[in-house]
Write a protein that binds this DNA or RNA. Structure first.
Length: 429
RNA sequence: GCCGCCGUAGCUUAGUUGGUAGAGCACCCGGCUGUUAACCGGGCGGUCGUCGGUUCAAACCCGACCAGCGGCGCCA
């Protein structure tokens, strides 16, 4: 038993081999049956005719249907007429499951593809997305392990919010209520006091009723937190991480990127250092590009698109005004009206994929911030304790892995980056 | 939450001024000695999203409901 990619290599030419998989296409011409077989590694054409196949087998081979599961044996031959220039000349055929009417055909609409996502995940296009996604997740892990980080896990059921409280999912919990987590950040912060450098990959949940190409209700959140790091240290780490992830995708997934239509040359250009532009300057650049921005305004989707289309590499936007960021961001001691933070905006109009920065580590400053934001100290007693006992400067970040995959693969919507997207109106399949 | 849009066969869709539904793909049958999303001929397949209204007559006009999509805001 060998895989399709092995069968396409030189070493099996002339040998009798057996392949298992699914029918990608089936055609018959006169006394010959052509079957294109698909497995996880690729597709290969097989040809069948009598007497190498029995009369019964030939009849079955010439009437196979799309996505039926089969096992075929035969001699591998070079043949310029076959796609891939190698094909299997069948001498036996076994059918595991013959389908009638596989629902996916050449005509497919976006909604229908979401309804039959459990079948669409077999398509060559989506298989390529899954392979790119796999490289992104693996290389994220590998990068941080190589830098001495520890992977940790935080609870998904929590009682405190990290962002605004209105975006929390409430779930019943033994007669009480808990929330599904929006971020593992605060839990990661607790663990830097023992491990110093930690990261996690976990789902985060947002109950915002977003209807956009860049939001999921449940998304994969990669987060890191590092003792003693300042904002600039954190950005440098993220640049190296991004370099590594992109180089790994370019190393393992060129064929996949081509299949999903990604411009690979653009991706090759995405190496560090990335630009660092303070928020104040972004406002000026936006106005030079014809936008009407004022200091203190948040960057909306249109503004972000205009700005990120202006650059051909990712851009760190730093030093946001205090009012635009959540309570845990550390104000710049030299410019207390801004916080020591960064957003990483992907170019080509894709926009924000990372948010991070220094955390407030002084107890009195954090208490004041909680008060300013109208958040009850009691709920955050454990977060405040971190500032009471051996508190240290530290920084962290959160990365939207689905957004990263969307950008790297050049996809139209974040829903195409994940096998089973959860959105405001979709929980099936 | 706000603004906009769509719903006809399993899928993609045509359907004029209101006159009772047509195609391509998939599937089935037949043909073809090398197909490349094969091709050619035939066949199967429709509660026109649901309910109600107007009309001699509704896929088409009106209303309500259901389902979904796009954009904004929020963020990763």
């Amino acid at each position: 038993m060998i895989s399709v990619s092995e069968a396409l290599s030189e070493k099996y030419v002339g040998k009798n081999v057996t392949l298992r998989g699914w029918v990608y296409r089936a055609r018959s011409v006169g006394k010959k049956a052509f079957v294109v077989l698909r497995d996880s590694s690729g597709i290969i054409q097989a040809v069948g005719e009598e007497p190498a196949l029995s009369a019964d087998e030939f009849k079955i081979a010439s009437s196979l249907t799309v996505e039926s599961s089969i096992e075929i044996s035969g001699i591998l031959k070079e043949d310029k007429r076959a796609p891939g220039e190698r094909e299997l000349v069948m001498n036996s055929l076994k059918v595991y499951c013959r389908n009638d009417n596989f629902p996916v055909t050449k005509d497919k609409g976006e909604e229908f593809l979401l309804d039959i996502r459990h079948l669409w995940v077999r398509s060559r296009e989506f298989t390529s997305v899954l392979k790119i996604r796999n490289t992104v997740f693996k290389s994220f892990n590998d990068y941080f392990y190589s830098q001495g980080y520890y992977q940790v896990q935080a609870p998904m059921m929590v009682s405190t919010a990290t962002e605004g409280g209105s975006t929390l999912f409430k779930v019943p919990f033994f007669g009480q209520e808990v929330n599904l987590t929006q971020s593992s950040q605060f839990y990661l912060e607790t663990m830097i006091f023992s491990l110093e450098k930690v990261f996690t990959i976990a789902p985060s949940f947002r109950a915002e009723k977003s209807r956009t190409w860049r939001h999921l209700t449940e998304y994969w959140h990669a987060e890191g937190e590092v003792a003693w790091y300042g904002n600039e240290d954190m950005m440098k780490e993220e640049e190296k991480m991004m370099d590594y992830i992109i180089s790994e995708v370019l190393k393992h997934n060129v064929e996949d990127l081509e299949r999903v239509g990604r411009d690979i040359n653009k991706l090759k250009n995405m190496n560090s250092p990335f630009l660092r532009i303070p928020y104040r300057r972004i406002i000026e650049i936006g106005n030079e590009l014809g936008l009407k921005l004022e200091y203190g305004m948040d960057l909306g989707a249109d503004e972000e698109r205009t700005i990120t289309n202006h650059f051909d590499k990712p851009v760190f936007v730093t030093d946001f005004p205090v009012s635009l960021k959540s309570f845990y961001h550390r104000p710049d001691p030299d410019h207390p009206e801004t916080v020591l933070c960064h957003d990483l905006l992907a170019p080509e109009g894709y926009g924000e994929i990372i948010g991070g920065g220094e955390r407030i580590w002084e107890l009195d400053v954090l208490k004041q911030k909680l008060k300013d934001f109208g958040m009850p100290e009691d709920d955050y007693y454990w977060y405040l304790d971190l500032r009471k006992y051996g508190s240290i400067p530290h920084s962290g970040f959160g990365l939207g892995l689905d957004r990263l995959v969307t950008w790297i693969a050049g996809l139209k919507t974040i829903r195409d980056s994940i096998p089973f997207p959860r959105t405001i109106r979709r929980t099936k399949p």
